[in-house]
Amino acid sequence: MPGTRVDAGALARTRATDPGAVARAAERRRRRPLVGDSGRLMIIAADHPARGALSVGGTPLAMADRTVLLERLCTALARPGVDGVLATADILDDLLLLGALDDKVVLGSMNRGGLAGASFELDDRFTGLRPRDISRLGFDAGKLLLRIDYDDPGSLRTMEAAARTVDAMAELGLPVFVEPFISRRGPDGRLRNDLSAAAVTTAIAIASGLAGTSAYTWLKVPVTDDADDMARVLAASTLPAVLLGGDTGRDPADQRRVYERWRGALALPTVQGLVVGRSLLYPADDDVAGAVDTAVGLL
């Protein structure tokens, strides 16, 4: 995949000898409104590694090589119509040092404590960017994950922490994207998100009511198993919403079907755009630019 080349050694040397370079790069970054003239958002997501979720399409460590991930991110961010990135502090620091975030929307990922496959996965503590970090660095918004399993008390702790984080972001005048799911453990102990219309509707209703105000809250929602149900699902809230991508696998036919589901859901009145990661950064044909351009075309 031709494109941007990243020198991991140079990044490491800068981090080792001049750690203040990150803050200076953040100060120099040119900012833009969260929603531009198009009224739409196209965000590339790359916060999966910090939760130990490194697989793509059945390849367990597909996202493990940080240099490759950064090169793919730089390629994606340079494409016309891409507004910005969602990532954890380590990746955002690298992108700042690479000068890849000028005039881009930056969303900081906040709770990554619910490690993939862990017994404590639903006690998803806020181990990433804090509201004051997002404000200090001049980033544009935050994102939190809220998975609710009615049989796991860890969900209640996460829900309370999420509500207080929404409060803190609102006090700073910063938008926060809440990604809610109803989740359940299967007989094998693995956690799975319920993408039925009823479950997604319930998750949206719960997330919309978090905290003392919803003035700065956005929703980050999946397209349901039956795309025809999306209009009824999103009728559960008047909050602005973006569609998430998830792992669409490595089958080109599966990816085309997902694109068509996005196309239909993007026509709904509260949907403002897409926040997509693995399916664009690691597409079946390995053409990052082509995959991103296709997604942008849906908007």
Results as ranks from 00 to 15, higher is better:
Leu115Gln: 14
Gly117Trp: 02
Gly117His: 06
Ala118Phe: 10
Phe120Pro: 01
Asp123Cys: 13
Asp124Glu: 07
Thr127Gly: 06
Gly128Pro: 04
Ile134Val: 14
Ile134Asn: 06
Ile134Glu: 01
Ser135Gln: 15
Arg136Glu: 14
Leu137Arg: 13
Gly138Leu: 15
Gly138His: 14
Asp140Ala: 10
Lys143Asn: 02
Leu144Cys: 15
Leu144Trp: 05
Leu145Phe: 05
Leu146Ala: 07
Arg147Trp: 01
Ile148Glu: 01
Ile148Cys: 09
Ile148Ala: 00
Asp149Ala: 09
Tyr150Pro: 01
Asp152Trp: 03
Gly154Ile: 08
Leu156Glu: 06
Arg157Lys: 15
Arg157Pro: 04
Glu160Cys: 13
Glu160Ile: 15
Ala163Pro: 05
Ala163Glu: 02
Arg164Trp: 12
Val166Ala: 13
Val166Phe: 07
Ala168Asn: 14
Ala168Arg: 09
Ala168Glu: 15
Ala168Tyr: 07
Leu172Arg: 15
Gly173Leu: 15
Gly173Val: 11
Pro175Leu: 09
Glu179Met: 08
Glu179Arg: 06
Arg184Asp: 00
Arg184Trp: 11
Pro187Ala: 15
Asp188Ile: 11
Asp188Glu: 10
Gly189Phe: 00
Arg190Ala: 13
Arg190Cys: 08
Leu191Tyr: 05
Arg192Cys: 10
Arg192Phe: 00
Asn193His: 15
Asn193Ser: 14
Leu195Thr: 04
Ala198Trp: 00
Thr201Arg: 15
Thr202Lys: 12
Thr202Trp: 00
Ala203Glu: 07
Ala203Met: 08
Ala207Gln: 02
Ser208Ala: 10
Ser208Ile: 02
Ala211Val: 10
Tyr216Pro: 00
Thr217Leu: 13
Thr217Arg: 05
Leu219Thr: 10
Lys220Thr: 03
Val221Arg: 04
Val221Cys: 10
Pro222Lys: 10
Val223His: 03
Thr224Lys: 02
Asp225Gln: 13
Asp226Phe: 01
Asp226Cys: 12
Ala227Asp: 09
Ala227Gln: 10
Asp229Ile: 06
Asp229Lys: 08
Asp229Thr: 14
Met230Leu: 00
Arg232Thr: 08
Arg232Met: 03
Val233Cys: 11
Leu234Met: 14
Ala235Phe: 05
Ala236Lys: 11
Ser237Glu: 01
Leu239Thr: 02
Pro240His: 12
Pro240Leu: 11
Pro240Arg: 13
Leu243Phe: 04
Leu244Ala: 07
Gly246Ile: 07
Gly246Ser: 08
Thr248Arg: 12
Thr248Ile: 11
Arg250Val: 10
Pro252Cys: 07
Val258Ser: 09
